[in-house]
Structure formats: C-alpha cells, structure tokens
Design a protein around this nucleic acid. Structure first.
Lengths: 346, 346
DNA sequence: GTGAAAGCGCTAACAT
DNA sequence: ATGTTAGCGCTTTCAC
C-alpha cells in the first residue's frame, strides 16, 4: 500500500486538491470555511497523510535540507554536540540535517568539492563547522548559498559565525580560583598560534589585573596542548620552591598531565593544589580523581545558534546579513567538580 | 543565474532531453552513438550541469537519502565513528546520510516517531544505531523500509544487524597477556546484564582454558563499568597478597580506575602490573601513562558494513534478506600501547 | 469560498 | 539512433 497523496485526501474530504493544499499549509489569506478546514484536516489524519517532500521541494525550489559540513566528526565528542544542537534546532523548523564529513586542512579543492556535493543535493543552506576555534578562508562556492560558520571565523568577514567566548571562559575559571583565595596561579598554555591560546591567556591576565594580582611571567608555561607536555610543564612548575597553589590549564588533557605530576610530587588535589581545566571533555574531566573543575565549550549551543541564524537568513531578514561583521560569542560556563579548594595555610 | 537543467544541456548538444538523460544515466541498452555521447557529456560539463535530485527523486521514487537514527550522538565519540563510516560508504554509492538523534530507552512511541520523521522525509532506508551492544525491539514502522541495525540485534530476528565480535576481542586481549607470560590474570567485569558482559567474560575463560590455566573465580570481580568502581575493585584485588600480575578490564574507564589503584599501591605499570582495557577510547587510553593497551570497537567498520548491506537490500538481492538470522560479527583488534609487559620474576 | 490547470526537472514507455 | 510525451505529487495563479 503506497502512502496517501494529496488527492486521496481531497477525495475523502470531498474538496479539490487546491483546498487541501491551502488548508494544510495554512496559506496566508486563503478563504476556506471553518467546516471545510476541519473536514480536510480530519481526512488527512485519517489517511495518515504526509506531504511528499520531494514533490514539495521540486515545486517550491526549497528542499528543506541543510548541509552540515564538519571536520573530523570522529575524533572528538565535540562534533557530536554540534550535530545534536543543530539537529534539534533544525527539527523545530522542519528542516533536515544532512551531514558530510570533511578532512581538516585538506589540500586543494577538497572543501570546494564537499560544498559542491551539498549543493548538488539541493541543500538550502550550509553549516560549516571546524573542530577548533580558528580563522578560515572559505571555499568560493559557499558564496552561492546562505551559510553560517561554527567554531571558526571567516577570514573575509562575509559569513556569519559563532565561536566560544574564550576570554569569558578563562575569566570564569581564573576568577573561581581567585575567589577560592589563590593568588599564585600558574597557567599551562597551548603553544599553537590559534585564537584560543591568546584569548584564554588574555582572560587569565584580565582576572589578575582586576584583582590587583601582579602578573608573573614565571608562572606561565607553554607547550603542545597534550597530556604529556602538560605533565612536563607541571613537573617543572610544581617542583619549584615557590610553586603556585593553583593551576589553570589550557585544556583538560594538559590538566590530566598536571594531575599526574601532582601525584608524583606527593601533592594532593585539591588540598595542596587546585586545578582548573578547559573544554569539559567528560571522558577525562569526570573520570579523574577528584573530578576536574573545568570550562565547558558551548558546542550544543553553537549548533542551535547556527541553525537559528540560518533560518533567519533563509527568510531574508536583512539585518542578519550584517552580523557577519562580528562573530557571535557564546558563553563558556564553568563546570565545578572537585579540583578546587582554598590554598593551604602556610 | 539559476543552474542549468537537462534541456539546456539538450539544446547545447543539439539533441533531445531523452538522449541526454540516457547518456548521463548510462541507461542500460540505450542506443546512442559514441559521438553523440561525447557531445552530450561535453555540453553537460560546459554548463556545469548536475541533475536536480528532487526531480529525480520524485520521478523515480528514490530519494537517495538514507536515515541514520542514532542514540546519544553527543555522549561518546563512538557515534562519530559510525557516522563517519556510514557517510564514507554512502558517498561511494551516491547516497546521502540524514541524521536523527534519538533518546536512549525513550519511553512510548518516541522511536516510532523518529522513524516516522525519517519516512516523512522520503528516506530510502534506515540505519538504526545504538550506543552499546544490546538486543532491541524495533519500532513497528521500521518494517516498511529496508533497515540495518548497528551495534545491536533485533529481538525478533528480522532485521540484519552488525555487532562487534566481543568474544574475539576479549580473546585477543587475554591472549596478549598470556603470551607475555601471565597466568594470574584478574578480570574486572561490568555487572550489567548486557551481551558484552557475558561475551567478554566468555572470551576470558576461553583463553584460560586454551592454555590450561585453571579458572580462579576469586580473580573475577564485577561492578558498574565506571572509573570509580573500577578503582575500588582494583584496590581490593591488588591489595591481596596473591595479587594477579595482570588485569583485563571490561572497559577503558575501569582500567583508568585500575591505574589509580596501582599508583596508590606503589605498583608500576607495566613493570609490576600489566593492564588491558576495552573500547579504545582515545581520550583515555592514549592519555594515560603509560598508554593503555586495549581492544578497539569497530564502529567505523560497522557503519560501512551497514551501508553496504543496505545497498544490497535496496538492490533487492534476496540472499541479503537472510542474513538477519545471525548478526554479522566484526573484528575487535587489539591496540598495543604500553601497559603490558612480562610479569616480574619473583 | 472553491476549483482547474499549469508546471517544477526529470525518467521512461513508446514512437519514429 | 534519437525524439515526443506523459506524469511523478505538489503549489500557485487565476477563474469562477
């Protein structure tokens, strides 16, 4: 049994397909009597009618599909949260998400081809998500379509973008430490030249300054943002006689390294050393002991924001064209677990 | 400028739309001269022609969309790997993946509704993925469509399914330990009544038996498969005077707990204690020190397998209807890092 | 307040 | 070897 079509509904309701279409689409200023509407709605429900999206798409030239071009879906749970947010928001607007994975930093025309694949599939718009916050130059054919960037900014400043409020997150983290009573706060930073490196550092300095704590450059170390380098840095920093009482780490992996260093040095967390991380990677943060207090990245929220913005763009709301100017900043909330306490009285 | 249609190509090539359609679709036993074909192809390329998928779908009643219904996309990286595999395989067959997230164990008709949402969107088939290996009963409306289960089996045995070869993975893990010289091997098992619990245990016993190592039930402990319970179990098992020289852990999180227990007891891994995990959660396994030797779950491969099977199903290849009988088992390879060594000579 | 009919871009049965 | 044409299921203009 093939599923019901609009004419089946029309027939059952004893009206024309036109009327059915009007009623079911709530066509603005249609003129259909209340009883007729009820009859049509009832007939549709009885038959379990749902419109054929392909026919609709063909006719209206709107597929209802939105493409999500994402880097490295597989590597981190972050992509999952973006997808989830985007997909939930899409459903609200009766849009469907189609996903294409793309290589990071793939050479040549790879991204161009991925965008093309999406265009070939008649997507109405595209979401372009990178796996860490950075500045990108977009494939030229992305210009043909409404688009929104997630977790990166358009080098050319044309496409609206949404990124985490890195500074705000770092401020929240370091403030938390300061409010617990710490004044000697080490910072284990990333050494890549990416926005997060500079912005989290800026947040760190900002808090010190706000609390009149002198900035001490001997407390700031940089290395690749992995567990092992984090460990190495922490060993060094914590081995000193004037060791800091707290550590702010660029990310949870570095914090994991710091945990190990602390353990080896006989420092108990949080009694002897407070630590806060960044990224809120559940697998790490929730499974360390004690649980790592860290800053969450708003991946879910960025997914939602991006779809909402796309919807506005699709509706042609002019003001949204302008928001490309400045990327939207989304809150990075602090997630408190058990790795922060007052510094030990000396 | 709206994109070229088939008649533009026809006009440019000086042929009819039929011919263009035949040529571009490589329609079986069409009769078109070689020169004409070339002319058509060239015209298509010149115009940058790509068929309108919506029109195609409407006409052929095949959308080229396949729905992936996945639980908890956001929670683990596992979903990402399934998506990636499925998406790569889909692209090979010119299929597009549309993703819907669904709640785990959602009550009532929720899964039914999710499947319906996919059907409403004219997907040709659906992939149904759960986040851990188990047996499920499927929403009734899934029967209307070709479907394949990923990481779970159909209680009713109707739908083809693919799951990890848990026994094989456990065998590989424990064999690795035995071959390193261990004979007292503890097992930290999950205490949930899920297939993996029983199958990994079966693999463990199987290896012991194959090597004439007597099974000692005092070496097997169960608890929820989290870090903290893993820690507790390991403390207990390793605190004994006749402690095992190696631990096989149900998953990497429990192994992470075991690492902590070992550290606290002054046991150095792998010198004093060898550990093997399961799941290969990179974030944990690669970031522990030393790196955790563990067993990888074939999520990517299951995604690929599922799409390939779906394609066969869609082509109506009868034999594939039968494979629902027995779920396909995919290899769980051992990933060797640094947590296994010979037992220390006494 | 309602309906007839054109047509979105394509495929495929049927002519020629 | 190539062309004509109906029609997929819907929206929308226009007529009544």
């Amino acid at each position: 049994m093939k599923s019901a079509g609009i004419r089946d509904v029309a027939q059952l309701a004893g009206v024309s397909v036109t009327t059915v279409s009007h009623v079911l689409n709530d066509t603005p200023n249609m003129r259909v009597s209340v009883e007729t509407r009820a009859r049509v709605r009832h007939a549709a429900k009885t038959l379990g009618y749902g419109p054929n999206r392909m026919a609709q798409a063909l006719r209206t030239n709107r597929s209802g599909l939105i493409g999500l071009l994402s880097e490295e879906i597989a590597t981190t749970p972050h992509a999952g949260r973006i997808i989830l947010g985007a997909q939930n928001a899409a459903r609200e607007h009766d849009l469907t998400l189609v996903i294409i994975n793309t290589e990071r930093d793939a050479g040549g025309t790879s991204h161009r081809d991925d965008v093309q694949a999406l265009i070939d599939r008649q997507v109405d718009a595209v979401l372009y998500a990178t796996m860490y916050h950075r500045s990108v130059s977009l494939p030229p054919n992305l210009q043909d379509l409404p688009a929104v960037l997630i977790d990166s900014t358009d080098r050319a400043g044309i496409v609206p973008a949404v990124v985490p409020d890195e500074v705000g997150g770092a401020v929240a983290a370091v403030t938390h430490l300061v409010e617990a009573g710490h004044t000697r706060i080490g910072f284990l930073n990333n050494d890549d030249d990416v926005p997060a490196t500079h912005l989290r550092f800026a947040g760190y300095r900002q808090v010190l300054q706000a609390h009149d704590i002198p900035f001490d450059e001997d407390l700031v170390f940089s290395a690749p943002s992995e567990t092992l380098p984090g460990y190495g840095l922490a060993r060094e920093l914590l081995g000193r006689s004037d060791r800091p009482t707290a550590l702010f780490c660029y990310n949870d992996r570095m914090a994991m390294g710091a945990y190990r260093a602390a353990t080896e040095l006989g420092l108990e967390i949080p009694r002897d050393l407070s630590i806060v991380g960044f990224d809120n990677q559940e697998l790490i943060a929730a499974n360390l002991f004690p649980g790592l207090t860290t800053v969450a990245l708003p991946h879910y929220e960025m997914g939602v924001w991006a779809v909402e913005t796309l919807v506005h763009l699709l509706h042609g709301e002019a003001e949204y064209r302008l928001i490309a100017d400045k990327p939207a900043l989304l809150d990075c909330p602090l997630v408190i677990r058990g790795s922060v306490a007052q510094p030990r009285a000396n």
